[in-house]
Design a protein around this nucleic acid. Structure first.
Length: 598
RNA sequence: GGGGUGGUAGCUCAAUUGGUUAGAGUUCCGGCUUGUCACGCCGGUGGUUGCGGGUUCGAGUCCCGUCCGCCUCGCCA
């Protein structure tokens, strides 16, 4: 085999005059006639121009090279020389070329269905790219992304190892849990009729590792949740998972903040500085979302108290609503200069937009020196002075108003704020705005189930000063959870855990888990808590989403080597697929599909 | 489970109101071409219009069903 002496991105003018060899794929070829042929050879780190000509090579060599086609795999040996033509400044190797003296064709390639060309890739149907993922991954962009991913995981191992963390693997075949996402399940052949579940996270195992005295644990692991994917969500995803003993909230946040700092510094050369903190309540009030994008200057203000006396039916009806113990509300966004910037077509679109969040629409009014104009102006005029003060209105602004249940209005305006910000170009895309969101509520009231559900997960501890609310007013009890948010995206989330059994039992009871159920599902955890559990807490960093930010993509499939589609399929290996009858029988089962109702 | 959108040559797209033999660029194949680098010039191959049914003298186009991709709501402790 003709082995390489360099990779294709390496040759420089300083190497000119030496004999080198390259291995790689034929990226393109440019045949200039019988005596001269250019071939760009590509490997993981770049392109280098190879020249076949009659001055350096013999006629047989040139003839052999003329048969080369895109994606053939070759080895070339020859003399590196300065280009006699113009240098190509688009290539790192653009000043030199390899004058070929020897060519080995390792493998002729069939005419490729797609080419590994970043220029084309944006246009190519993703379905085709996923089917031929081995060609798509040859693209420089994809090589860069997956190598960045590798750098990040190495950085994580180095950073946490330096801080005394031990990497411990937790099992993939575990037991189904009642709370949370739908589990992927696996039949247990040796226990016929019984099932394993694949882990949604190593949560309970890492807590038990704390009880087991490991003190500080890290794992870069796969997590599996059988729920519908999104652009930034896959059923199978990776996280950097850690847990620490003898710590309080700030200790975990400091440790993880340090990691985020290291990642942005080492990968992007960017100093993220001190990470700000904000309570969940403030985030919801000002931004309508628990992961605010602070690059967007628009803010939400509640005006329920101001318009409480309004005769406007929409306001009245909203205020009279109650749900989950919260009164309905009227909230507004001031859009600076909106009177001119927001067209009728846009504001009509906004009403359609918010309907998907189950609210009726958006009321719009312009504000001028003379007062409110258009839309619901006449309903706002009676409250003009108070509204001007509350919203800091200036002539030329617009106000967007939603009146509904508290959670509906908050969600609708939170999403609308993002959309208006994008539409008007208010977001500085080159900025990084990090934020810790803290003081989450322990529980959400589930209207359908008429019970409390854990907002984070049921092992999250209340904040130290909140224990007394656990039984008296669970709805007001704040947790010791924390989310790390960057540019409106949650990239890490965790909490201080409950380390005392009596507290854990109270929480289970609150979320409607009977003692028997709790013992059956989590008996091992309760037992562990009785046998010397240290105060502990942890956090998990979403590796895929982290990479999306670092490489600048809004498609999670771009940062996963072999991702799945929205229907959970792998188009390359054509999974999922059927299994042999015998495989089913081995598990003591037979399969009967329930017919879909039409 | 709901909403939206798309599927035509290997790839990216076009095709008027339902009307001739479904076109173009590119890949590929052949020829030409000694300084190109998204090389260039000439010629050629290439089609179950996702699949199944229906309406019609006639369907890529209209209707019904179905499969697949993407976006999204629900969901994601």
């Amino acid at each position: 085999m003709l082995k390489r002496t360099h990779t294709c991105g390496q040759p420089r003018l300083a190497n000119a005059g030496t004999t080198i060899a390259l291995n790689g794929w034929v990226n393109t070829y440019r045949d200039q006639g019988r005596g001269l042929l250019f071939v760009d050879i590509r490997d993981r780190d770049g392109l280098c121009q190879v020249v076949f000509d009659l001055e350096h090579g013999n006629p047989d060599l040139v003839q052999k090279a003329r048969a080369l086609r895109r994606e053939d795999v070759i080895g070339v040996r020859g003399t590196l020389r300065q280009r006699s033509g113009e240098p190509n400044h688009k290539l790192a190797t653009g000043e030199v070329e390899l004058a070929a003296e020897e060519l080995e064709i390792f493998n002729k390639a069939e005419n490729p269905p797609i080419l590994p060309d970043d220029h084309d890739a944006e246009k190519i149907n993703e379905e085709i790219r996923l089917k031929y993922r081995y060609i798509d991954l040859r693209r420089p962009r994809m090589q860069h992304i997956l190598r960045t991913r590798s750098k990040v995981t190495k950085l994580a191992r180095d950073y946490f190892a330096a801080n005394g963390f031990a990497e411990v693997e937790t099992p993939l075949l575990i037991k189904s849990t009642p709370e949370g996402a739908r589990d992927f399940i696996v039949p247990a052949r040796l226990h016929q009729g019984m099932w394993y579940a694949l882990p949604q996270s190593p949560q309970l195992f890492k807590q038990i590792l704390m009880v087991a005295g490991f003190d500080s644990y890290i794992q870069i692991c796969k997590c599996l949740r059988d729920e519908d994917p999104r652009a930034d969500r896959q059923a199978e995803f990776s996280q950097i998972d850690l847990e620490m003993s003898f710590v309080e909230r700030e200790d975990v946040m400091t440790m993880m903040g340090g990691f985020a700092h290291a990642v942005w510094h080492d990968i992007l050369g960017y100093d993220i500085g001190e990470i700000a903190q904000m309570t969940w309540q403030e985030a919801m009030d000002r931004f309508g979302i628990d992961r605010p994008d602070l690059r967007n200057p628009l803010e939400i203000r509640e005006i329920t108290d101001i318009v409480a006396g309004s005769e406007f039916q929409v306001f009245q009806q909203a205020i009279e609503k109650t749900r989950a113990g919260r009164a309905g509300c009227v909230k507004a966004i001031r859009v600076p200069g909106g009177a001119e910037k927001l067209t009728r077509k846009m504001t009509d679109g906004y009403t359609e937009f918010v309907k998907q969040f189950k609210t009726g629409g958006v009321a719009v009014a312009k504000f001028t020196a003379a007062g409110f104009e258009t839309g619901i102006a006449k309903h706002l005029d009676p409250f003009k002075d108070a509204l001007v003060a509350r919203l800091a209105l200036q002539a030329g602004d617009s106000v967007l108003i939603v009146a509904d249940h508290w959670d509906t209005a908050t969600k609708a305006l939170g999403e609308l704020r993002l959309k208006v910000g994008r539409d008007l170009g208010l977001v500085n895309e080159s900025e990084w705005r990090f934020l810790w969101v803290i003081d989450f509520p322990m529980f959400d009231w589930d209207e359908d189930g008429q019970r409390w559900v854990a907002m984070h997960h049921p092992f999250t501890s209340p904040n130290p000063d909140q224990f007394h609310l656990l039984e008296s007013e669970p709805g007001k009890c704040l947790s010791a959870g924390y989310d790390l948010v960057v540019n409106g995206s949650e990239i890490a989330g965790g909490s201080i855990r409950i380390h005392r059994m009596d507290v854990q039992e109270k929480v289970f009871k609150l979320i409607g888990l009977t003692k028997e159920d709790a013992d059956a599902k989590f008996g091992f955890l309760l037992s562990a808590l009785r046998h010397g559990a240290p105060p502990h807490g942890g956090i998990a960093f979403g590796l895929d989403r982290l990479l999306m930010h670092l490489v600048g993509t809004d498609n999670i499939r771009d940062v996963i080597a072999f991702p799945k589609t929205q229907s959970g399929g792998d188009l390359m290996i054509d999974a999922p697929g059927p299994i042999d009858e015998q495989q089913i029988l081995d598990c003591g089962m037979k399969v009967t599909l329930i017919e879909k109702k039409s």
